[in-house]
Nucleic acid binder design. Sequence first.
DNA 1: CCAGTGCCGGTAATCGATTACGCGTAATCT
DNA 2: AGATTACGCGTAATCGATTACCGGCACTGG
Lengths: 339, 339
Amino acid sequence: MSGQQRAARITDVAREAGVSTATVSRVLNGLGTVDPELAVRVRRAAEVTRYVPNPNGRALRRQRADVWAAIVSDVQNPFFTSLVTAVEHVAVRSGIAVMLCNTDEQLDRERSYLATAVAQRMAGVVVSVTSEAESDLSALLTAQVPTVVVDRRVHDFSGDTILLDNVEAGRLATEHLLALGHRDIMCLAGPSGVSTTEDRLQGVRMALTDAGLSLDPARMVRTDLKIDDAETAVRAALANQRNHPDAIFAMNGPLTTGAYRGVQASGLRMPDEISLVGVDDDRWTQMVSPAVTLVAQPVDEMGTRAAERLVARAEDPEIEPIHLLLPPRLQIRGTTATA
Amino acid sequence: MSGQQRAARITDVAREAGVSTATVSRVLNGLGTVDPELAVRVRRAAEVTRYVPNPNGRALRRQRADVWAAIVSDVQNPFFTSLVTAVEHVAVRSGIAVMLCNTDEQLDRERSYLATAVAQRMAGVVVSVTSEAESDLSALLTAQVPTVVVDRRVHDFSGDTILLDNVEAGRLATEHLLALGHRDIMCLAGPSGVSTTEDRLQGVRMALTDAGLSLDPARMVRTDLKIDDAETAVRAALANQRNHPDAIFAMNGPLTTGAYRGVQASGLRMPDEISLVGVDDDRWTQMVSPAVTLVAQPVDEMGTRAAERLVARAEDPEIEPIHLLLPPRLQIRGTTATA
DNA sequence: CCAGTGCCGGTAATCGATTACGCGTAATCT
DNA sequence: AGATTACGCGTAATCGATTACCGGCACTGG
């Protein structure tokens, strides 16, 4: 056993190559000017000793770690895993590691991850916040950590922001249902602090108003963004045989899953007896029968753009922030039909 | 704008409290003995200055970073996100951050993440390897980074290992199909380097042998562990109307998803015309109709046990390695019926 | 032939924290 | 009382890398 064998440090490489540590550093980082022959010796020495720079020492000195944080509220939500995957693809190309931070919709966990990002002097943060009003990104700002806000808005933040056009998403879904003749539409939204479902709700209201209608408060249901909560809420709403809505709009991925299950449990047949529009195009929505009509987000594009923004800002911290609203796409499938 | 406002360092806290940095460190880490009154002053000073220790400085000096790596081959696979979530729950309790490393089944990406883990002196690694034969964890061993191998076996590793009893999983599935009278069973496995599907295959063979049968090589199909590849393979196998298998065993999560879709596309009705047994109990398997019969893994337990192992080894590096085989559970639902 | 200009590369400071060591004081023992 | 031990705390070394600064050398121009 034993082994022990400590990892090679830059001094080991320097000794092996017969140069100083400064030269090793210059060669390996491609900075300054070094005699080509020495450079060869250094590179060979690094090979021989299997040298891998210690990221802690490097980050300490450079005041910048080659790490991005991806802060999301639910790693089990395929929307976020897709987002993170897209970010990661770009990161790998840039030699950067991605630390996945799962807040579970809890503000204090978000705070702790943000503090870590600052303390580590991370090279960038991509964050979907927990709460529009309460999340506080000011520490990132003052520490000048490149930050891209995605998916959900947050107050008092004027940096790079890449969101879905959520108002449009709500409008698309609602207009589709209205066009099919539905008038009694139940809206399943998340807690009021989350901008995505708020904005989608606003889109719903606008579409209804345009049609001379308004949203019945009794049909406005808020739950946590959990599958089981949504299922329970939908079952409750459909329990009343004589007075149930004739359509449901579930405003995010987990809510859609829960709503679908709730309808299944109620015994009502989609789309004849009730229509459903969801959000987020996960694999299962095409496998069930009927397949789910929904509003799809360009999630890969969201992640890729966010990551590219971090790369760009690393090169020039002074570039103007962008504010992108990506277009939603209505995917009509089998859960919606004429009333 | 501007702001700049650098983060507080330990020297700032020391000055604010009128003590040395050593005392600040002792108070904040609860080591050594410090006058209670000074401790109060230090804690207050830390509050006032909003001090957060710099993890890089700390890790450099301590030769250990409060970070675990969770190395998996596909963050889009719900099995792995569940695993990581379980690990993370334990990590949060211990004040440890989890770095999610997505190898995409690529050996070189795995190598790079392993090197990072060593270079960072991470406090632990939970890894589901890319290849039983080619993945190389020896660097972790020599650097004495606490490591738990989960899900997939790897050669030459004698440390903590927590796997499903995959042979039993294969046997359970096969015996179920045999009991229903199926004789022509198609096996959908991953690339030969992955121990999970290999072991499950072995279970299949044992069950067949026990029944006086053997696996028809023509019914043994290997694809990458991708949904689309599996779907294609199943469609191809079912295209021959007159000679298709009467049952399919898909040996992991994505393969199950692909197989289900492949059967759907083929037009054959489950379970009357063909039976399907899958692996991994994701939400969708209960939402589709018919619901999927499958072998479920105790994935939360796997993640929790792995993480607890890291915690235990942090306290005492010399504890004996464990080798756990968790029991699979057959979940009989709607995709299997008598032949 | 000497001063001036660049180029190379080494020495040492530095990033921020932990901790070995040692000093001074107080408590305890003989 | 004098000696011994224990405790509390500060000084300075240290982790591993990057980089400001400077000295030495070669080359150029006058």
